[in-house]
Simulated assay, not measured.
Amino acid sequence: MNAPFPPIAHAGPFPDVFPPETRAHFAASYPEAPHLLDHRLREHPLLTLDALAALGEALPPASVEYNRGDLPIGVDGKPEGNGLTIGETIRSIASARSWAVLKNIEQQPAYATLLAALLDEIEGEIVARTGSMRKTQGFIFVSSPDAVTPYHFDPEHNILLQLVGSKEMTVFPAGDPRFAPHSVHESYHTGGPRELVWRDELAAGGTAFALEPGKALYVPVMAPHFVRNGPVPSISLSITWRSEWSFAEADARALNRLLRRFGLSPRPPGRWPARNLGKAYAWRVLRRLGVRD
């Protein structure tokens, strides 16, 4: 078993990471519009390369993912590994030509405190729109110069805070089947991959957001995106949460996949503020009865 991550003194976040004007902008745009935000989270003892390498070594293997970063925007399945350990990858990120993500950092108490403090600042704005925050999670991305995170989507509401270096994230409209077919969404919510098929003609539909230290980006649930890192190593912190809306959308997608097996052509779930509760409740009943796709 991995040893627990050692506590670091004075590891709490700086106060008021999200200034009032940022919270107001977030409240006006959440949950459907991707938008840039300002933040004040700068140098922090939990977010240095040495601390992150130690965190990667302390997390269970299922909570770390790292691979080559010299990739195209679209990949077929999971990218190749880089032949290094997670600790080696992070400590040598300047030359490793790699991309690494540390998942569910809240498994370590110091990082759980950091995540909770950041989300507490914007909880009021979130609850007012989509209700209680559920399944809060944190992810840290460490990327080599010019590394690419291929085209994919994620099931969470997500704010990505850029801490070191720069990157450009290109985001595509959520729920638009031109960028992520409904069948792919349905497959993902019943255990399939989140990687998407890239075609160059899709590029015109994306919006590129430039991120540098002090900037953050809110990404809506299931909005397709890809990331290009800048010319120096990058560290980013992703704070995420689920809502009843996001769970209902996922369950409605799962039911639609089952309906297609019976030759039907179900309507896709509606985007927020549509609630999708009818299909969601039906799938939850079927799941309790042991029905699986």
Score class of each variant (00 low, 15 high):
Asn2Lys: 07
Ala3His: 05
Ile8Gln: 14
Ala11Leu: 01
Gly12Ile: 06
Pro13Phe: 04
Pro15Phe: 04
Val17Gly: 00
Ala24Lys: 12
Ala24Val: 07
Pro31Ala: 13
Glu32Ser: 13
Pro34Tyr: 05
Leu36Ser: 13
Leu37Tyr: 03
Asp38Ile: 12
Leu46Val: 00
Asp50Arg: 10
Leu55Gln: 04
Glu57Val: 07
Pro61Met: 12
Ala62His: 11
Arg68Val: 09
Gly69Arg: 11
Asp70Gln: 15
Ile73Pro: 13
Glu80Ile: 14
Gly83Glu: 10
Thr89Phe: 14
Thr89Gln: 12
Asn104Met: 11
Ala110His: 11
Leu118Thr: 01
Glu125Trp: 03
Arg129Gly: 07
Arg129Thr: 09
Arg129Tyr: 05
Ser132Asn: 13
Thr136Cys: 11
Phe141Pro: 02
Asp146Tyr: 07
Ala147Phe: 06
Val148Phe: 02
Pro150Cys: 03
Tyr151Asn: 00
Asp154Ser: 03
Asp154Phe: 02
Asp154Lys: 02
Asp154Arg: 00
Pro155Tyr: 06
Glu156Ile: 07
His157Asp: 10
Gln162Arg: 03
Leu163Arg: 00
Gly165Asp: 01
Met169Ala: 14
Pro173Glu: 15
Asp176Phe: 08
Pro181Glu: 15
Pro181Asn: 13
Ser183Glu: 13
Val184Asn: 15
Trp198Gly: 06
Glu201Trp: 08
Ala204Glu: 12
Gly205Pro: 15
Thr207Trp: 03
Phe209Trp: 05
Ala216Gln: 01
Val219Ser: 05
Val219Gln: 06
Met222Gly: 07
Pro224Trp: 06
His225Ala: 05
Ile239Thr: 09
Arg242Ile: 04
Arg242Val: 05
Ser243Gln: 12
Ser246Ile: 02
Phe247Glu: 11
Ala252Leu: 00
Arg257Pro: 05
Leu264Gln: 04
Pro266Asn: 03
Gly270Glu: 05
Arg271Met: 12
Trp272His: 11
Arg275Pro: 04
Leu277His: 04
Lys279Ile: 03
Trp283Ala: 07
Leu286Ile: 08
Arg288His: 15
Leu289Phe: 15
